[in-house]
Amino acid sequence: MSSPSRPLHVLWMLISRYQQYLAWRDAAQMRTARIRAETQAQQQLQAMLHANPSGQLGHAVLDDESALRKSRLIE
């Protein structure tokens, strides 16, 4: 006969594996969303540079730390 704790252990193991699967799926979705957002940001920057050929945005870059600090978005 199996001990009473054996079925609980199996149940716990199955729940644990399912939770790990959910975590992996969430991480994959977040990677996809991050890539999509970075691509969109790059496209928007290119569109801004194309729409403003005067040179005012000619040196714009994504994640420019000095510009972010100057605008106080980061410290």
Rank of each mutant, 00 (worst) to 15 (best):
A41N: 10
Q19I: 06
Q40H: 01
Y18A: 03
D64M: 03
V10I: 15
Q43P: 02
D26K: 01
L57E: 10
A51D: 09
A67P: 00
G58W: 07
Q19E: 10
W12R: 13
M30N: 05
L14S: 02
R17H: 06
S3Y: 13
S71Y: 06
S2D: 15
P7M: 08
P4W: 10
W24K: 04
L57K: 05
R72A: 13
K70M: 14
L57V: 05
L45D: 00
Q43W: 02
D26M: 01
T32D: 01
L57F: 13
S71E: 12
P4A: 12
Q29V: 00
R17L: 09
Q40R: 04
L14H: 03
N52K: 01
A41M: 13
L14R: 08
S3I: 05
M30Y: 06
A41H: 06
H50Q: 11
A28P: 00
E75I: 08
S54V: 03
W24N: 08
A28E: 08
T39K: 08
R69K: 14
L68Q: 14
P4Q: 11
R31V: 06
Y18V: 04
L22D: 00
A27Q: 10
G55M: 11
M13V: 09
A23M: 09
R25M: 01
A60F: 08
G58P: 02
L11G: 01
V10K: 08
Q42V: 02
Y21Q: 12
M13A: 15
G55P: 04
Q42P: 00
A51T: 01
R6F: 15
K70Q: 14
P4G: 09
L8G: 15
Q42T: 11
S2L: 15
Q46N: 12
I35G: 02
H9R: 15
T39E: 13
P53K: 01
Q20M: 04
